[in-house]
Protein backbone atom coordinates (compact mmCIF):
# COMPACT_ATOMS: atom_id res chain seq x y z
CA UNK A 1 0.00 0.00 0.00
CA UNK A 2 1.43 3.36 -0.93
CA UNK A 3 0.20 6.90 -0.73
CA UNK A 4 1.80 10.17 -1.63
CA UNK A 5 2.10 12.46 1.28
CA UNK A 6 0.91 16.03 1.42
CA UNK A 7 3.62 17.03 3.79
CA UNK A 8 6.61 15.70 5.63
CA UNK A 9 5.98 13.02 8.25
CA UNK A 10 5.01 14.29 11.66
CA UNK A 11 7.87 16.12 13.19
CA UNK A 12 9.33 14.86 16.40
CA UNK A 13 9.29 17.74 18.81
CA UNK A 14 12.69 17.85 20.47
CA UNK A 15 15.50 19.85 18.90
CA UNK A 16 18.99 18.39 18.76
CA UNK A 17 21.70 20.06 20.78
CA UNK A 18 24.72 21.69 19.13
CA UNK A 19 26.91 18.77 20.19
CA UNK A 20 24.49 16.27 18.70
CA UNK A 21 24.32 18.25 15.48
CA UNK A 22 28.08 18.19 15.25
CA UNK A 23 28.58 14.57 16.27
CA UNK A 24 25.87 13.23 13.98
CA UNK A 25 26.55 15.69 11.16
CA UNK A 26 27.62 13.17 8.52
CA UNK A 27 24.62 10.92 9.07
CA UNK A 28 22.11 13.77 9.35
CA UNK A 29 23.31 14.74 5.90
CA UNK A 30 22.25 11.28 4.74
CA UNK A 31 18.99 10.55 6.52
CA UNK A 32 17.90 13.99 7.61
CA UNK A 33 17.15 15.76 10.86
CA UNK A 34 13.80 14.08 11.44
CA UNK A 35 15.35 10.62 11.29
CA UNK A 36 18.01 11.65 13.77
CA UNK A 37 15.31 12.90 16.14
CA UNK A 38 13.46 9.61 15.84
CA UNK A 39 16.64 7.70 16.57
CA UNK A 40 17.06 9.75 19.71
CA UNK A 41 13.83 8.39 21.13
CA UNK A 42 14.47 4.72 20.30
CA UNK A 43 14.99 1.99 22.90
CA UNK A 44 16.71 -1.15 21.68
CA UNK A 45 17.31 -4.54 23.34
CA UNK A 46 20.28 -6.50 22.07
CA UNK A 47 20.28 -10.04 23.40
CA UNK A 48 23.29 -12.26 22.84
CA UNK A 49 26.58 -10.39 23.21
CA UNK A 50 28.60 -12.60 20.89
CA UNK A 51 30.69 -11.06 18.12
CA UNK A 52 27.59 -10.30 16.08
CA UNK A 53 25.89 -8.76 19.11
CA UNK A 54 28.95 -6.59 19.69
CA UNK A 55 28.85 -5.37 16.09
CA UNK A 56 25.16 -4.48 16.31
CA UNK A 57 25.71 -2.81 19.68
CA UNK A 58 28.52 -0.68 18.25
CA UNK A 59 26.55 0.48 15.22
CA UNK A 60 23.35 1.18 17.12
CA UNK A 61 25.10 3.13 19.86
CA UNK A 62 27.01 5.16 17.29
CA UNK A 63 23.77 6.02 15.48
CA UNK A 64 22.56 7.90 18.55
CA UNK A 65 19.55 5.99 19.89
CA UNK A 66 18.09 6.82 23.29
CA UNK A 67 18.76 3.58 25.14
CA UNK A 68 20.50 0.27 24.56
CA UNK A 69 19.99 -2.71 26.84
CA UNK A 70 22.64 -5.40 26.55
CA UNK A 71 21.35 -8.80 27.53
CA UNK A 72 23.19 -12.07 27.97
CA UNK A 73 23.30 -14.89 30.51
CA UNK A 74 26.44 -16.45 29.04
CA UNK A 75 30.03 -15.86 30.07
CA UNK A 76 32.94 -14.54 28.02
CA UNK A 77 34.96 -17.43 26.57
CA UNK A 78 38.09 -17.72 24.47
CA UNK A 79 35.89 -18.08 21.40
CA UNK A 80 34.62 -14.52 21.87
CA UNK A 81 38.10 -13.17 21.11
CA UNK A 82 37.43 -13.98 17.45
CA UNK A 83 35.00 -11.10 17.13
CA UNK A 84 33.62 -9.84 20.45
CA UNK A 85 35.68 -6.65 20.72
CA UNK A 86 33.53 -5.05 23.42
CA UNK A 87 34.75 -7.26 26.23
CA UNK A 88 38.37 -6.95 27.28
CA UNK A 89 40.50 -10.09 27.47
CA UNK A 90 40.73 -9.99 31.23
CA UNK A 91 36.92 -10.21 31.43
CA UNK A 92 37.05 -13.87 30.44
CA UNK A 93 34.71 -15.90 32.64
CA UNK A 94 32.45 -12.94 33.50
CA UNK A 95 29.01 -12.20 32.12
CA UNK A 96 29.22 -11.16 28.47
CA UNK A 97 26.71 -8.31 28.64
CA UNK A 98 28.32 -6.80 31.74
CA UNK A 99 31.80 -7.32 30.33
CA UNK A 100 30.78 -5.23 27.31
CA UNK A 101 29.48 -2.22 29.23
CA UNK A 102 32.64 -0.12 29.55
CA UNK A 103 33.61 -0.17 25.90
CA UNK A 104 30.00 0.17 24.77
CA UNK A 105 29.60 3.33 26.85
CA UNK A 106 32.83 4.80 25.54
CA UNK A 107 31.43 4.65 22.00
CA UNK A 108 28.87 7.35 22.67
CA UNK A 109 28.35 8.98 26.07
CA UNK A 110 24.96 10.32 24.95
CA UNK A 111 23.32 6.89 24.87
CA UNK A 112 21.95 5.26 28.00
CA UNK A 113 23.46 1.77 28.25
CA UNK A 114 22.89 -0.96 30.83
CA UNK A 115 23.09 -4.75 31.07
CA UNK A 116 20.77 -7.58 32.14
CA UNK A 117 21.94 -11.10 32.92
CA UNK A 118 18.89 -13.26 33.71
CA UNK A 119 18.05 -16.02 31.22
CA UNK A 120 15.88 -14.74 28.39
CA UNK A 121 13.35 -17.53 28.93
CA UNK A 122 12.44 -15.96 32.27
CA UNK A 123 11.45 -12.72 30.60
CA UNK A 124 7.90 -11.91 29.54
CA UNK A 125 5.80 -9.19 28.02
CA UNK A 126 6.60 -6.72 30.76
CA UNK A 127 10.29 -6.90 29.92
CA UNK A 128 10.05 -6.90 26.13
CA UNK A 129 7.44 -4.15 26.18
CA UNK A 130 10.05 -1.62 27.32
CA UNK A 131 11.68 -1.60 23.89
CA UNK A 132 10.91 -0.42 20.39
CA UNK A 133 13.16 -2.98 18.74
CA UNK A 134 14.46 -6.31 19.98
CA UNK A 135 17.28 -8.23 18.30
CA UNK A 136 18.18 -11.70 19.51
CA UNK A 137 21.06 -13.98 18.56
CA UNK A 138 22.23 -17.33 19.89
CA UNK A 139 18.76 -18.63 20.81
CA UNK A 140 17.03 -21.80 19.69
CA UNK A 141 13.94 -21.79 17.51
CA UNK A 142 11.48 -22.48 20.32
CA UNK A 143 12.67 -19.45 22.27
CA UNK A 144 12.73 -17.25 19.16
CA UNK A 145 9.12 -18.29 18.46
CA UNK A 146 8.07 -17.42 22.00
CA UNK A 147 9.68 -13.96 21.93
CA UNK A 148 8.34 -13.24 18.48
CA UNK A 149 4.76 -13.98 19.47
CA UNK A 150 5.07 -11.76 22.55
CA UNK A 151 6.59 -8.99 20.40
CA UNK A 152 3.82 -9.26 17.85
CA UNK A 153 1.22 -8.84 20.55
CA UNK A 154 3.04 -5.82 21.95
CA UNK A 155 3.82 -4.27 18.58
CA UNK A 156 7.55 -4.46 19.26
CA UNK A 157 9.73 -4.98 16.16
CA UNK A 158 11.68 -8.24 16.34
CA UNK A 159 14.84 -9.46 14.61
CA UNK A 160 16.38 -12.92 14.93
CA UNK A 161 19.95 -13.09 13.69
CA UNK A 162 23.08 -15.22 13.87
CA UNK A 163 26.53 -15.76 12.51
CA UNK A 164 28.24 -19.16 12.33
CA UNK A 165 31.85 -18.81 11.27
CA UNK A 166 31.53 -16.64 8.19
CA UNK A 167 27.91 -17.40 7.36
CA UNK A 168 24.99 -15.38 8.67
CA UNK A 169 21.32 -14.47 8.44
CA UNK A 170 18.58 -12.36 9.91
CA UNK A 171 14.82 -12.69 9.98
CA UNK A 172 12.70 -9.57 10.42
CA UNK A 173 9.30 -9.85 12.08
CA UNK A 174 8.01 -6.27 11.94
CA UNK A 175 4.24 -6.89 11.87
CA UNK A 176 2.60 -3.96 10.09
CA UNK A 177 5.32 -1.47 9.33
CA UNK A 178 4.79 2.02 7.95
CA UNK A 179 7.64 3.86 6.32
CA UNK A 180 8.42 6.64 3.92
CA UNK A 181 10.46 6.18 0.81
CA UNK A 182 11.64 8.90 -1.49
CA UNK A 183 10.58 7.99 -4.97
CA UNK A 184 12.84 9.54 -7.53
CA UNK A 185 11.40 10.67 -10.82
CA UNK A 186 12.79 12.55 -13.74
CA UNK A 187 10.64 15.52 -14.60
CA UNK A 188 10.98 17.17 -17.97
CA UNK A 189 11.62 20.85 -17.47
CA UNK A 190 12.45 21.89 -21.00
CA UNK A 191 9.87 23.38 -23.30
CA UNK A 192 8.50 21.07 -26.02
CA UNK A 193 10.51 22.72 -28.80
CA UNK A 194 13.78 22.54 -26.87
CA UNK A 195 16.17 19.70 -26.41
CA UNK A 196 14.91 17.57 -23.54
CA UNK A 197 16.15 18.59 -20.13
CA UNK A 198 15.15 16.82 -16.95
CA UNK A 199 15.24 17.51 -13.28
CA UNK A 200 15.25 14.95 -10.50
CA UNK A 201 12.20 15.15 -8.32
CA UNK A 202 12.17 13.24 -5.07
CA UNK A 203 8.73 12.65 -3.63
CA UNK A 204 8.21 11.11 -0.19
CA UNK A 205 5.68 8.33 -0.43
CA UNK A 206 4.28 6.47 2.56
CA UNK A 207 4.01 2.70 2.46
CA UNK A 208 2.44 0.16 4.75
CA UNK A 209 3.77 -3.38 4.56
CA UNK A 210 3.05 -6.63 6.43
CA UNK A 211 5.95 -8.66 7.80
CA UNK A 212 4.98 -12.23 8.70
CA UNK A 213 5.84 -14.00 11.94
CA UNK A 214 9.00 -16.02 12.61
CA UNK A 215 6.90 -19.18 12.47
CA UNK A 216 6.57 -18.78 8.69
CA UNK A 217 10.29 -19.50 8.38
CA UNK A 218 10.01 -22.66 10.49
CA UNK A 219 7.06 -23.79 8.36
CA UNK A 220 8.85 -22.99 5.14
CA UNK A 221 9.62 -26.07 3.01
CA UNK A 222 13.08 -25.58 1.56
CA UNK A 223 12.71 -28.80 -0.42
CA UNK A 224 9.57 -27.72 -2.23
CA UNK A 225 10.17 -28.33 -5.95
CA UNK A 226 9.00 -24.81 -6.73
CA UNK A 227 11.79 -23.45 -4.60
CA UNK A 228 14.72 -25.38 -6.11
CA UNK A 229 15.22 -22.97 -8.98
CA UNK A 230 15.66 -20.13 -6.51
CA UNK A 231 18.26 -22.06 -4.54
CA UNK A 232 20.13 -22.57 -7.75
CA UNK A 233 20.06 -18.88 -8.49
CA UNK A 234 20.93 -17.37 -5.14
CA UNK A 235 22.98 -20.17 -3.63
CA UNK A 236 22.28 -22.69 -0.91
CA UNK A 237 22.47 -20.32 2.06
CA UNK A 238 18.93 -21.03 3.11
CA UNK A 239 19.68 -24.77 3.28
CA UNK A 240 22.75 -24.09 5.37
CA UNK A 241 20.68 -22.03 7.77
CA UNK A 242 18.29 -24.95 8.22
CA UNK A 243 21.18 -27.30 8.93
CA UNK A 244 22.70 -25.00 11.53
CA UNK A 245 19.44 -24.31 13.30
CA UNK A 246 18.74 -28.02 13.41
CA UNK A 247 22.21 -28.64 14.82
CA UNK A 248 21.51 -26.08 17.55
CA UNK A 249 18.09 -27.49 18.40
CA UNK A 250 19.38 -31.06 18.58
CA UNK A 251 22.70 -30.48 20.33
CA UNK A 252 21.64 -27.52 22.49
CA UNK A 253 24.79 -25.74 21.28
CA UNK A 254 26.53 -24.56 18.10
CA UNK A 255 29.35 -26.36 16.29
CA UNK A 256 32.48 -25.92 18.40
CA UNK A 257 36.10 -25.48 17.34
CA UNK A 258 37.05 -27.79 20.21
CA UNK A 259 35.22 -30.69 18.60
CA UNK A 260 35.72 -29.50 15.06
CA UNK A 261 36.01 -32.84 13.27
CA UNK A 262 33.17 -34.49 15.16
CA UNK A 263 30.90 -31.52 14.59
CA UNK A 264 31.73 -31.39 10.91
CA UNK A 265 30.54 -34.98 10.72
CA UNK A 266 27.36 -34.15 12.59
CA UNK A 267 26.70 -31.27 10.22
CA UNK A 268 27.31 -33.47 7.21
CA UNK A 269 24.85 -35.99 8.58
CA UNK A 270 22.17 -33.33 8.93
CA UNK A 271 22.99 -32.07 5.45
CA UNK A 272 22.65 -35.49 3.92
CA UNK A 273 19.25 -35.79 5.56
CA UNK A 274 17.81 -32.66 3.98
CA UNK A 275 19.93 -31.81 0.96
CA UNK A 276 22.45 -33.19 -1.48
CA UNK A 277 26.22 -33.02 -1.09
CA UNK A 278 26.48 -30.74 -4.07
CA UNK A 279 24.25 -28.14 -2.48
CA UNK A 280 26.40 -27.60 0.59
CA UNK A 281 30.05 -28.40 -0.02
CA UNK A 282 32.37 -29.83 2.63
CA UNK A 283 34.44 -26.65 2.29
CA UNK A 284 31.47 -24.54 3.29
CA UNK A 285 30.94 -26.73 6.35
CA UNK A 286 34.55 -26.12 7.39
CA UNK A 287 33.86 -22.39 7.74
CA UNK A 288 31.11 -22.50 10.37
CA UNK A 289 33.06 -22.27 13.63
CA UNK A 290 32.97 -19.46 16.19
CA UNK A 291 32.11 -16.07 14.69
CA UNK A 292 34.72 -14.69 12.35
CA UNK A 293 35.09 -10.95 12.69
CA UNK A 294 34.65 -9.67 9.11
CA UNK A 295 31.50 -11.76 8.63
CA UNK A 296 30.10 -10.58 11.96
CA UNK A 297 30.82 -7.03 10.76
CA UNK A 298 28.90 -7.54 7.53
CA UNK A 299 25.84 -9.17 9.12
CA UNK A 300 25.97 -6.79 12.10
CA UNK A 301 26.15 -3.83 9.74
CA UNK A 302 23.17 -5.08 7.76
CA UNK A 303 21.04 -5.80 10.85
CA UNK A 304 21.90 -2.39 12.33
CA UNK A 305 20.93 -0.62 9.15
CA UNK A 306 17.60 -2.46 9.20
CA UNK A 307 17.03 -1.40 12.81
CA UNK A 308 17.78 2.19 11.82
CA UNK A 309 15.30 1.94 8.94
CA UNK A 310 12.66 0.61 11.33
CA UNK A 311 13.23 3.32 13.93
CA UNK A 312 13.43 6.22 11.49
CA UNK A 313 10.52 4.85 9.43
CA UNK A 314 12.58 5.76 6.37
CA UNK A 315 13.14 3.29 3.52
CA UNK A 316 11.78 -0.24 3.23
CA UNK A 317 13.23 -2.80 5.63
CA UNK A 318 14.12 -5.87 3.60
CA UNK A 319 11.38 -8.46 3.75
CA UNK A 320 12.20 -10.71 5.44
CA UNK A 321 14.94 -13.39 5.49
CA UNK A 322 18.47 -12.16 4.79
CA UNK A 323 21.30 -14.53 3.90
CA UNK A 324 24.98 -13.69 3.64
CA UNK A 325 27.14 -16.05 1.62
CA UNK A 326 30.79 -15.40 2.56
CA UNK A 327 32.33 -17.07 -0.46
CA UNK A 328 30.70 -14.90 -3.09
CA UNK A 329 29.91 -12.08 -0.64
CA UNK A 330 26.40 -11.96 -2.01
CA UNK A 331 23.80 -10.70 0.44
CA UNK A 332 20.24 -11.38 -0.62
CA UNK A 333 16.74 -11.38 0.71
CA UNK A 334 14.27 -14.23 0.54
CA UNK A 335 10.62 -13.31 1.02
CA UNK A 336 9.25 -16.00 3.34
CA UNK A 337 5.50 -16.32 3.77
CA UNK A 338 4.99 -13.25 1.62
CA UNK A 339 2.64 -13.31 -1.34
Amino acid sequence: MAMEMDSAPNEVGVELTDTENELYDRQIRLWGLESQKRLRTAKVLISGLNGLGAEITKNIILSGVNLVKLHDDKLVTEEDFCSQFLSAREKIGTNRAEASLDRARALNPMVEISADTQPLKDMGAEYFGQFDVIVVSGENNAELLRIDSICRELGVKFFATDVWGMFGFYFASLQTHRYVENIIKHKIISKPNEKQKTEIISTPVQFEVEYPAYSTWLDFDINAPSYQRKIKRNGPGIVLLRILQEFRDVNKRDPSFKTREADINKLKKIRDGIASKSTITDDAIGMLFAQVSPAAAVVGGVVSQEIIKVVTKMEAPHRNLFIFDPETCVGYVEPIGVN
Binding site: Q27, S63, G301, S304
Partner: peptide, 8 residues
Protein backbone atom coordinates in the same frame (compact mmCIF):
# COMPACT_ATOMS: atom_id res chain seq x y z
CA UNK B 1 28.97 8.71 5.96
CA UNK B 2 27.48 6.13 8.30
CA UNK B 3 28.86 3.38 10.51
CA UNK B 4 26.83 0.55 8.99
CA UNK B 5 27.96 0.96 5.39
CA UNK B 6 31.55 1.24 6.55
CA UNK B 7 31.23 -1.91 8.67
CA UNK B 8 29.72 -3.90 5.80
Amino acid sequence: AIATTNAI
